[in-house]
Amino acid sequence: MAHREHKYHVTVTWTGNQGTGTSGYKAYSRDHEIGSAGKATILGSSDPAFLGDRSRWNPEDLLVGSTSACHKLWYLHLCAEAGIAVLDYVDEAEGTMVEGAKGRFTQIVLRPRVTVRAGDDVDLARRLHHDAHEQCFIANSLNFPVLCEPSIRTE
């Protein structure tokens, strides 16, 4: 199989200079904007634990969200190929980060609740989560476990 390379261009612009820049730890806002050509801007900050704005997305939220979204996209693809009609998909994903000499994530747990068409193979629908995890570009790039605890029901 030929290897293809994809590049992603994102601009992060700090918008938190409150007049004196980073003259002190509490002298500036952590606010920023994440943009990419032709897409809506994402308003970002840091986690409130690090003086961020809780109404904005922080990098940790985005990492957990990216992992969940990638898994979902692969899962939907694999279900479509297998003839399973997914009618609803909601994931209550949770990431765990610890602080120490270096802060790091220790795991992400995906908890997708999936509804499939009546009569579809529920066991296969459950197993396809494993295959989606194996294919997920984001999960394959992480150095910590991504666990999946799916629940499948029929309409």
Rank of each mutant, 00 (worst) to 15 (best):
K26V: 03
K26C: 00
K26D: 09
K26M: 04
K26L: 10
K26P: 00
A27W: 03
A27E: 11
A27N: 13
A27S: 15
Y28V: 10
Y28I: 09
Y28F: 15
Y28P: 07
S29N: 10
S29K: 10
R30H: 13
R30N: 11
R30I: 12
R30Y: 05
D31H: 07
D31S: 06
H32I: 07
H32L: 12
E33G: 00
E33H: 04
I34H: 01
I34C: 03
G35E: 14
G35F: 05
G35P: 00
G35V: 04
G35Y: 02
S36H: 11
S36Y: 03
A37K: 15
A37V: 00
A37M: 05
A37Y: 04
A37G: 05
A37W: 01
G38Y: 01
G38K: 00
K39N: 13
K39M: 10
A40I: 03
A40F: 07
T41Q: 13
T41F: 07
T41V: 15
I42M: 12
I42F: 08
I42D: 02
L43P: 02
G44C: 11
G44L: 09
G44P: 12
G44H: 09
G44Q: 06
S46V: 04
S46P: 07
S46A: 15
S46L: 11
S46M: 13
D47N: 15
P48A: 06
A49C: 00
F50Y: 15
F50D: 09
F50N: 10
L51P: 00
L51K: 13
L51F: 13
L51A: 12
L51Q: 12
G52E: 02
G52P: 12
G52W: 07
G52V: 12
G52R: 03
D53C: 06
R54F: 03
R54D: 14
S55V: 05
S55F: 04
R56M: 08
R56W: 07
R56F: 08
W57Y: 14
W57A: 14
W57H: 10
W57D: 02
N58D: 11
N58E: 01
N58I: 04
N58M: 04
P59I: 02
P59V: 03
P59M: 08
P59D: 05
P59F: 01
P59E: 07
E60A: 08
D61I: 06
D61M: 08
D61C: 05
D61V: 04
L62T: 09
L63H: 13
L63S: 11
L63E: 11
V64F: 04
V64P: 01
G65V: 02
S66N: 09
S66V: 06
S66K: 04
T67V: 12
T67Y: 02
S68N: 12
S68Y: 07
S68G: 12
S68D: 14
A69K: 02
A69N: 12
A69D: 09
C70P: 01
C70M: 07
H71A: 08
H71T: 09
H71M: 06
H71E: 01
L73Q: 05
L73H: 06
W74K: 06
W74G: 05
W74S: 01
W74H: 08
W74P: 00
Y75W: 12
Y75P: 11
Y75F: 14
Y75I: 00
L76H: 11
L76R: 14
H77F: 11
H77A: 10
H77N: 10
H77R: 13
L78Y: 15
C79I: 03
A80D: 15
A80K: 15
A80S: 14
E81N: 13
E81V: 13
